[in-house]
């Protein structure tokens, strides 16, 4: 079985400052994971801001070159995609969904023009009815229809609808992998579950693998198959989502879980900041040790 996506020992360093005060920042350090083809799954990357999760997503999308290591998608690495035709072929298979739907769409253009542009460039369609069919097909998958959004501007749609249109745009070339970078953090709580349920339906019904990037542990628990927790560019814990989130082992994972606001004690005024000793252990040992495999299939940095 070939891998859909193979990330091997990938690192990314950014240089900051001028010639005299040059500093190196490690955004991503030695990250490896594999998504198998044929078994669609939701792979979740969790971390705070600055943990390198978005940099990793940009490298997978080919928007950033890794400093070390290799990212191979369906047998081809980024170097082999230098020419336009190969690049387009890659974009047909991997599509992004971004965080803020209000920023992703130009407020002065009808939203369908984005769908149309994707259908033209990636599917090479020229015929008007074929384009409309492709748009309608993708919109049907997200619970909308072309008739509903025809001629609409972004401000005429709610945040949840707009994010669904963004996902529909990504689905037009029928990709094998969708990279969703915090797709729900800008969407209202009441509409959030419609996006999360949609990602799950895409996996179950249409066989699309999803890399779901978030800092929300509760939705991650709800939809993920596997999970990877990142701290300052390092993977600290990786494995099957539910066991990892139920009993996290690395101090940083425990700190994240403790910080989740529970509704069990609603209205009791219980609001203890996370245990300081755990937090200190988590921060001081950031990045030290190596990943060790545990009997239940998870990897923990020790």
């Amino acid at each position: 079985m070939t891998a859909l996506l193979d990330v091997t020992a990938v690192s990314k360093r950014f240089a900051m400052g001028g010639i005299l005060s040059r500093k190196q920042t490690d955004a991503v350090v030695d990250v490896s994971f594999t998504l198998a083809s044929g078994t669609p799954e939701i792979f979740t990357i969790i971390g705070e801001s600055g943990s390198g999760k978005t940099t990793l997503a940009r490298m997978i999308l080919g928007l950033e070159d890794p400093s070390d290591g290799q990212i191979v998608f369906e047998g081809s690495s980024a170097e082999e995609r230098r020419n336009a035709a190969r690049r387009l072929a890659f974009m047909r298979r991997v599509q992004p969904v971004f965080q803020n739907p209000f920023e992703a769409f130009n407020p002065l253009k009808q939203v369908e023009r984005y769908l149309e542009a994707t259908a033209r460039t990636l599917l090479g369609l020229k015929d008007r009815t074929a384009i409309e069919d492709a748009m309608d097909g993708a919109l049907q998958k997200v619970g909308l229809s072309y008739a509903e959004i025809k001629g609409r501007f972004p401000h005429e749609l709610s945040g949840g609808q707009l994010q669904r249109v963004a996902i529909a745009r990504a689905l037009i070339p029928e990709p094998a992998l969708l990279i969703a970078d915090e797709p729900v953090s800008m969407v209202d709580a009441s509409l959030r579950m419609s996006i999360v349920n949609l990602l799950r339906d895409l996996r179950d019904t249409f066989g699309v693998s999803v890399i779901y990037i978030t800092h929300d542990l509760a939705t991650a628990y709800y939809i993920s198959d596997r999970i990877m927790i990142m701290q300052k560019g390092h993977v600290v814990e990786m494995g099957p989502a539910r066991p990892v989130l139920e009993t996290p082992q690395h101090p940083y994972s425990r700190l994240l879980k403790q910080s989740v606001l529970s509704t069990e004690n609603a209205g009791q005024g219980v609001l203890e900041p996370a245990d300081r000793s755990i937090a200190r252990a988590a921060w001081e040992n950031a990045g030290s040790g190596r990943l060790v495999e545990k009997p239940d299939g998870r990897m923990v940095r020790e």
């Binding site: 709580a189 999360v196 349920n197 509760a218 509704t263």
Partner: peptide, 21 residues
């Protein structure tokens, strides 16, 4: 609003509210 909050340890399907504001 209260019932659709996902929680760690809870695997039941949460429905989203239909329609738009």
């Amino acid at each position: 609003l209260v019932g659709s909050l996902p929680r760690i340890g809870d695997t039941t399907t949460k429905a989203a509210l239909e329609g738009r504001p």
